[in-house]
Design a binder for these strands. Structure first.
Length: 428
RNA sequence: GGAGAGAUGGUCGAGUUGGUUUAUGGCACCGGUCUUGAAAACCGGCGAAGGUGAAUAGCCUUCCGAGAGUUCGAAUCUCUCUCUCUCCGCCA
């Protein structure tokens, strides 16, 4: 959510920045509504002040044995009047709220306008692998090795699910262990959050109400609307950890990571082009998350990107880092870097990590603050998140990069400690 | 799933025959006096959001788990919901 004072004091600046995200808005009606709203607040508060003052007098008058019927009649009038104004106010507040919560975050000053086409590749690591034989698609490789079972995955969960088996399961677990060991080394706190979250969690993250139909929703037996959902990313959980809290400045930055599967409906996604495990309804991901002061968040974003890049680099995969244009960033984010790994069979780079700074956008939605030591005042925190990493695209990239002519796959050195020290996954 | 108890501003904890409580008091914390320094003692301060202000000054409004209701007036009465704790049952 944006700062309403910013819109009041500088609507043109806000409008211009939102336009860079491709979001057109006119604040004229909003500002008029806001002025109207504030006038009503003044009216009702004056009446309430009178009510409070008089109410204190009533017991005194009664004690003196005076007649209070006239005063009470006047108070009844005041009461009815405030009730009427408060009803109008409630409606204006609701309208203002839904307008405000629909506005995306403002892009950072160094983020260029426009959509995907304006994304800028800022770093390329490694080179495209070359093969002296006919390179295979990852689906063919893993099926031949018998380490991913798509057929039975679909039998269990339907289209968009798979089963990791044997060395595939081990490899998946090795990747997660490798990621986690790096985060622990860097002093991030490990946690396992619930996978089923309340509606409020999606709201704070900035994913709801707009994208509430993209998640798997859970309804109570008698409920019309859903109260819980299965998390689409651990970010949704981590961003709510300190909701409605005031932290002390010395605690910041707080650095967390969590492993969870991610569950997404992906309704209407193009499956044909993305054969295999590029886009499934469930995938494993480790998410990094930071709570910072406003002045810490720029450096925190750089740290998160560097960490994610280090993980991919450690696996020896070819990848690039893109700085997203304003329109390609998620609604909640001021600035986003994507790390995209090369998938030979697709002749393309695919996102394996997205690192973003939400500024105070999520904090305002979730009322997440810290107390500034120098002033003693509360301020909104900044929140940042980055995958570190999702495995569903790493594993395909990995088996394609490291495939051998005989169908076996070399295991990157960093994963071997979790693969029984072996160097290769062999065709049996 | 059944029964019971509870939820008060950082924390502990008063207040529930509705009205001089503007939400006691202790602790913690902050400032000051005292002290070579510290402790103790004493004095003062000490929640959040909003409106109006140039104001981080005043003044006003709201908030006692959440929402609705009764009333001139609700922490206190009524209803619904959420969460926590205890006991019983069931269970990986």
């Amino acid at each position: 959510m944006l700062d309403i004072n910013l819109i009041r004091s500088n609507p043109d600046m806000v409008r211009e920045k939102l336009a860079r995200k491709g979001y057109e808005v006119n604040f004229a009606e909003f500002l008029e509504l806001d002025a109207n709203r504030r006038q009503l607040i003044g009216e009702t508060e004056r009446l309430k002040a009178e009510k409070n003052k008089t109410s204190a007098e009533i017991p005194k008058l009664k004690k003196e044995g005076l007649d209070t019927t006239e005063v009470m009649a006047r108070m009844k009038q005041v009461s009815d009047q405030t009730r009427e104004i408060d009803e109008q106010l409630a409606e204006l507040n609701a309208r203002q709220q839904s307008f405000l919560e629909a506005l995306p975050n403002l892009p950072a000053d160094d983020v260029v306008a426009g959509g995907k086409e304006n994304n800028e590749v800022i770093k390329v690591v490694g080179t495209k692998p070359e093969f002296a034989f006919a390179a295979r698609h990852h689906v063919d490789i893993v099926e031949k090795l018998g380490i991913i079972d798509y057929t039975r995955g679909a039998k269990l969960g339907g289209s968009g699910f798979w089963v990791y088996r044997k060395d595939g399961a081990l490899l998946e677990w090795a990747l997660l262990n490798y990621f986690m060991s790096c985060h622990l080394r860097d002093g991030y706190e490990m946690m396992f959050p619930p996978h089923i979250l309340t509606y409020q969690c999606g709201y704070t993250a900035g994913q709801f109400p707009k994208f509430k139909d993209d998640v798997f929703q859970l309804r109570r037996d008698d409920g019309e609307d859903f109260t819980h959902f299965i998390l689409p990313t651990a970010e949704t959980a981590l961003v709510n950890l300190h909701r409605d809290e005031i932290l002390s400045e010395e605690e910041l930055p707080l650095k967390y990571f969590a492993y969870t599967p991610c569950y997404r409906k992906e309704a209407g996604s193009y499956r044909a082009e993305e054969r295999g495990m590029i886009r499934g309804h469930q995938f494993n991901k480790i998410e990094m998350f930071q709570y910072t002061t406003p002045e810490q968040s720029d450096a925190a974003l750089e740290e998160l990107v560097a960490k994610a890049a280090e993980l991919v680099e450690g696996l020896g995969l070819h990848f690039r880092i893109s700085k997203l244009a304003a329109g390609d960033c998620s609604a909640s984010m001021t600035k986003t870097y994507d790390i995209e790994v090369w998938i030979p069979s697709m002749d393309d780079y695919k996102e394996v990590s997205s690192a973003s700074n939400a500024g105070d956008y999520q904090s305002r939605r979730g009322n997440m603050k810290f107390r500034r030591q120098s002033t003693g005042k509360t301020e909104l925190m900044h929140t940042l998140n980055a995958s570190g990493l999702a495995t569903s695209r790493i594993l395909p990239a990995l088996v394609e990069h490291y495939q051998q002519a005989d169908g076996s796959v070399i295991i990157p050195e960093v994963l071997r400690p979790w693969m029984g020290g072996r160097e290769k996954i062999e065709v049996k």
